[in-house]
């Protein structure tokens, strides 16, 4: 089943007529910004789908439209084969916005109880589910009785995730779920997302942290300036061929290092070790020969493939000039 399906989804923001910027009045006669430009996406049931893009690409706008926070200027979208705003479908979605803010006058358990009631959960179900969630998202023992205004940014992110999972949703939509979390917190969120997939749930999330997205996503879409640049399964998008080799050796003499330098793309000396990036197998053999002759020690030899980050940068920079040309063309027209 297609869980999320967008069809030429477009969002154009019209600016306020008058703006005050840096103490100066600015008139915005008919000034408009295209935040999302004919976006076509399909998210399948049971997959972890990552929506990636630089700042201002339109990731949050896409999510806000899907969650009924914004209305599209044109185009349409369906969730679980129903139009946006369908209450039955909303009851099966869990949503965590970017940098979440909640009713800070409520205590942790009051807050989850309130949202549980909005989901229409019975009292018994809420009583069972809420303590379970405090444990699942890793909130400390005192969190249920602490007002939300006393929560740290990381704790808010965690309770935000808890409210998104409150109704045991079929679709979990997370906007930058790892922002504001330390490395340990990021790993915990990754583990929760993977656990959700194991339970058969669909996870749709946006992220800046590409290394994490690469670890958990089945499919990704990259958008830039509101346009879809690429979409597909990670192993098909990324080049599977070996890109280069990373060699770390120790105990090499200065003369040997100088001999190796012209063969390597990168050669970095670090506390007695030498890290080299060499492009082909022939260069690897040559380096190995020198290491053996010098009676030095080979610490590691790693073949490197293209990472999601490299693919992302390549794709975004490849499309940027075209976009500029297209925009200029449209403006001239």
């Amino acid at each position: 089943m297609i869980v999320i399906d967008t069809n030429k989804l477009t969002k154009v923001y019209t600016h306020d007529f008058i703006d005050v910027e840096h103490g100066r009045i600015r008139f915005n006669f008919f000034r408009r910004t295209v935040a999302l430009d004919h976006l076509d996406l399909e998210v399948r049931e049971g997959e972890i789908f990552g929506l990636l893009g630089p700042n201002g690409a339109g990731k949050s706008t896409t999510i806000k439209i899907l969650m009924g926070i914004l209305f599209p200027t044109s185009g349409s979208a369906r969730i679980m084969e129903r139009p946006l705003g369908d209450k039955t479908v909303k009851g099966q979605i869990g949503f965590l916005p970017e940098n979440p803010a909640f009713c800070d006058y409520l205590k942790g358990h009051e807050f989850l109880n309130y949202y549980g009631e909005l989901y229409g959960m019975t009292r018994d179900r809420r009583r069972r589910r809420i303590p379970e969630l405090f444990g699942l998202v890793g909130l400390p023992d005192h969190a249920p009785n602490l007002p939300l205004k006393g929560y740290s940014k990381g704790m808010l992110q965690r309770i935000g995730l808890a409210q998104a999972l409150l109704n045991d949703p079929k679709l979990v939509v997370l906007d930058e779920p790892q922002s504001g979390l330390d490395p340990l917190g990021r790993k915990e969120i990754r583990d929760i997302i993977l656990a959700l997939k194991e339970e058969g749930k669909t996870v749709f999330f946006s992220s800046h942290i590409l290394s994490d997205a690469e670890l958990i996503c089945d499919r990704v879409a990259i958008i830039n300036r509101g346009c879809l640049i690429s979409i597909g399964e990670l192993n098909k998008l990324l080049n599977t061929k070996i890109k280069d080799y990373e060699i770390v050796a120790s105990g090499l003499s200065g003369a040997a290092i100088e001999a190796l330098r012209p063969r390597a793309q990168k050669c970095i000396e670090r506390e007695g070790d030498v890290l080299m990036i060499v492009p082909t197998e022939t260069e690897v053999n040559e380096v190995m020969r020198i290491v053996v002759n010098e009676k030095a020690r080979l610490v590691s030899l790693t073949p490197r493939r293209e990472t999601l980050e490299e693919y992302f940068i390549r794709e975004v920079s490849r499309h940027a000039p075209d976009e500029e040309t297209a925009r200029e063309g449209a403006a001239n027209a």
């Binding site: 909303k90 916005p97 940098n99 979440p100 803010a101 909640f102 909005l118």
Partner: peptide
Amino acid sequence: KRTIYTIVSKPID
């Protein structure tokens, strides 16, 4: 404060 984001995404009108 953007608390409305999580409220309108719930099954309420």
